[in-house]
């Protein structure tokens, strides 16, 4: 199957600093992809390049095997960018009608209202009189106006209250069931975990993990215990211990991979082995993960 999104060696430098560093991935039809990472990880920059709004320093970004700037692509995508205020002096329904006219096969106003949960009162309001959350909802409706096959949401739930969030993600799931492809960026691990079928984890401009939420979480939690051992022991024996996922031998050290270092350590001591120079290491995703959790606590 041809990928809907295709990104190869995408790189963006701002004044010599690499905001996005050699990123490659493809997205297939029907996937819900979360681009997850702390602030400044390069999520938005990557998204802007995918949309053709920012010129890559190197690499290519293609949507539906075409240049993202082409009109054919624009007719098939819907976009919700961060911090876009709406055209003022217009009623919501006038703005929606304007957007519907841009596309060959737009969704009807009733469908848009149903999908986004807007009220009739909101439709008659001027855009400048809306609250932040209401504006986001109109932005969502604008993204859906053309009945797009591919949707981009850049930090979509910032500024939404919990009810609005719930409604938003419910609709997103419904859209995915209809075969639409969805890409969203977020710095909430929880959101990515709940909604996405796939998480692409960004840190410092690079993709550091790419997989289903279950795989990602397993990677995040995986830790290792390493030590020197002054006697020989069958690797298979360690391998069969409870909670040990893998055993690696490296430069005279044995390394046990585990999600539960405490219990493995206890076992090792019970065996009364002559362990030396014990070290416990966190998974390589841990740094990014910590930043994510810290931010969640703050916000």
């Amino acid at each position: 199957m041809q990928p809907v999104v295709q990104i190869e060696n995408l790189t963006k430098e701002f004044k010599g600093k690499r905001a996005v560093d050699d990123v490659s991935f493809t997205v297939q039809r029907g996937e819900i992809v979360a681009i997850l990472g702390p602030n400044g990880a390069g999520k938005s920059t990557t998204m802007l390049m995918m949309l053709g709004l920012l010129k890559p320093t190197a690499g290519i970004a293609k949507l539906f095997q075409e240049e993202p700037q082409s009109r054919a692509v624009h007719e098939r995508i819907g976009v919700m960018l961060q911090q876009v205020s709406l055209m003022d002096a217009l009623k919501v329904k006038e703005l929606l009608a304007l957007f519907q006219a841009y596309y060959p096969k737009p969704l009807s106003l009733e469908t848009l209202v149903k999908l986004t949960g807007m009220t009739n009162g909101e439709l008659d309001k001027r855009t400048e009189k809306l609250s932040g959350g209401q504006k986001r909802r109109v932005g969502f409706a604008l993204a859906l106006a053309g009945d797009p096959d591919l949707l981009f949401f850049d930090e979509p739930t910032v500024g939404m209250d919990s009810t609005a969030r719930k409604q938003f993600w419910l609709t997103v799931k419904e859209l995915a069931e209809q075969g639409k492809t969805i890409l969203f960026s977020t710095h909430y691990l929880q959101e990515a975990d709940d909604i996405a079928t796939r998480i692409i984890l960004f840190n410092e401009g690079k993709v550091i993990a790419d997989g289903s939420p279950i795989e990602i979480k397993r990677n995040l939690l995986r830790q290792s215990i390493s030590f020197k051992l002054n006697e020989t022991i069958e690797k298979a024996y360690l391998m069969n211990m409870k909670d040990v996922l893998a055993v690696v031998e490296d430069k005279g050290r044995l390394k046990l991979m585990t999600e539960n270092p405490d219990s493995v350590l206890r076992k090792l001591f019970e065996l009364d082995l002559r362990l030396e120079d014990i070290a416990i290491e966190k998974g390589r995703l841990e740094d990014a993960f910590e930043q994510l959790t810290v931010e969640q606590e703050v916000s």
């Binding site: 053709g52 960018l81 961060q82 876009v84 709406l86 055209m87």
Partner: peptide, 17 residues
């Protein structure tokens, strides 16, 4: 105003020439 508020950017990803 429309440019600074991001509206023009959004229009660039719609089919409006």
């Amino acid at each position: 105003q429309e440019k600074s508020e991001g509206w023009t950017t959004l229009l660039r990803v719609t089919p409006l020439p």
